[in-house]
Amino acid sequence: MFDALVIVTLVATGALAVFGLVETARNRPPGKPLAYAVYATVALLVVQAAIAAVRVFGGVQVPETTTFLIYLLVSVCVLPIALQWANADPNRWGGAIVAAGAVGVAVAVLRLQGMWAVAGA
């Protein structure tokens, strides 16, 4: 699946997870920098999802189209929800919540990449 973009999103989600955990370790509530990091990562994920969706609807055969599209949707939605959940009770654990979301999204991206690889597109 557009390998370069997958690597960029994996690096971004990985960095976001580390950032969140560092904030928790430093006992800081989720602040503006963490929010911007989430927005930037989600922007990348939206671009990735848009490209993938266009290509699937354009005829690229992935093994499980429905699952693939659900994973695309999940990859975009999880981090905004996690940030919301983190900000609802702003304390040191907000960063860890964002980190959990980032790891979940990274796994989703890896699964997407796996399905795309099977498609051989």
Binding site: E64, T66, T67, W85, A86, D89, W93, A100, G101
Partner: peptide
Amino acid sequence: TATGPGRVLIAVYGIFALSATARAGVQIAG
């Protein structure tokens, strides 16, 4: 239960709820 580190636990539970249910839904429906 929804305070402090409990909120991290709930976030992980939420991710599992979402992914397990979505996956099973697709499998059962398809």
